[in-house]
């Protein structure tokens, strides 16, 4: 099965609230795709729809080209962590994984393997009810990894992690993608995904805001700029302005360029044989880029219009 997720024209209404409004995006193998949006944007609803837990009113959500409920061994195709708190408190962590394993025809050996994978082997026989949120997140990851699926759906897996946990989770997600898995990770904070996601799907009010690589997203941010030091200031200004950038003089040999990435500036100057001494892209932080993209959705919410809340 191809490790892909394809959501197309997804529409879902909960009572008066339109949670998903024609959402379309796709996730490809070998990438950690950040699934971003403010609270209430419809991230969890989308994930539940992909798993067939919520039925879409319109549109489709396919994994590897198929509807999730039609999968004969679902956890072998898609691993998911939607709700780290979904545990019987009096059941041990190991037994929580054991019933899931049994449902897919797997045994205790695989349970022990995933417990070791997430570093919970020493807590395996403790009641899951006594776990911290960070431990529950690891247990949830273990559950998602049980049947070694090519597709992973993780809803806010960074919540409640300590700094060590953050580092571990980032590395873990990157390694999953490196193996050729498709990993969709939701978050409402862009900063959580820095260093792991290579691609982002940003949604707001149940609609796609943008789908891009992290690099594109940053470049696209309107307040990103490039500081340039050059002895041929006038020439450089002419070339860059000609390429469509906004150029401002900040010193005798210093310029700031807005509207072009550092690479683009270097390329344009190189092509015109304009010498330059130093070129430093000052990116807007990822967070700023994301804030700008989702501002519309947040403003909409701030005006007090009923916002989708289900499941967030």
């Amino acid at each position: 099965m191809e490790a892909t997720i394809e959501v197309s024209g997804a529409r879902k209404r909960f009572g008066q609230t339109l949670a998903l409004d024609g959402l379309t995006f796709s996730v490809r193998p070998g990438e950690v795709t950040g699934f971003l949006g403010p609270n209430g944007a419809g991230k969890s609803t989308t994930m539940r729809a992909i798993l067939g837990l919520d039925a879409l009113d319109e549109g489709t959500a396919l994994v590897g080209g198929r509807r999730y409920p039609s999968l004969t061994r679902p956890l072998g195709h898609v691993g998911s962590l939607l709700d780290a708190g979904a545990l019987q408190p009096s059941r041990s962590a190991r037994n929580h994984l054991l019933w899931l394993a049994h449902s897919q025809g797997l045994g205790a050996a695989r349970v022990d393997a995933v417990l070791a994978l997430v570093g919970l082997d020493s807590a395996a026989r403790r009641h899951a009810g006594g776990f911290s949120l960070g431990m529950r997140q690891r247990l949830g990851i273990a559950a998602a990894m049980l049947a070694d699926p090519p597709i992973l759906l993780l809803d806010e897996p960074f919540n409640g992690l300590d700094p060590d946990g953050f580092v571990w989770m980032r590395g873990f997600l990157r390694s999953l993608a490196a193996e050729g898995r498709a990993v969709l990770v939701s978050s409402h904070l862009m900063s959580e995904l820095e260093g792991s996601a290579t691609h982002v799907v940003v949604i707001g009010r149940g609609r796609l805001v943008t789908e891009a690589t992290v690099a594109e997203l940053i470049a696209r941010a309107s307040n990103g700029w490039v500081a340039l030091r050059t002895s041929a200031r006038e020439q450089a200004m002419a070339v860059l302005a000609g390429a469509g950038a906004t150029v401002a003089v900040t010193g005798p040999d210093a310029l700031t360029v807005q509207g072009m990435s550092g690479e683009q500036v270097a390329q344009a100057l190189g092509a015109a044989a304009v010498p330059f001494a130093e070129l430093s892209p000052h990116r807007a932080s990822l967070e700023e880029a994301y804030m700008e993209l989702t501002r519309e959705a947040v403003e909409y919410r701030a005006q007090g219009v009923s916002a989708p809340t289900a499941g967030e």
Binding site: R28, T72, R73, Q104, L106, E179, T198, H199, E216, Q264
Partner: peptide, 23 residues
């Protein structure tokens, strides 16, 4: 910009090495 940043070429999908089981 009109200069698109190239996405990496699609990677081959992951194949599990677990023995097959039934659900």
């Amino acid at each position: 910009t009109d200069l698109d940043l190239a996405r990496p070429a699609p990677t081959a999908s992951y194949r599990s090495t677990l023995p097959p089981s039934r659900a």
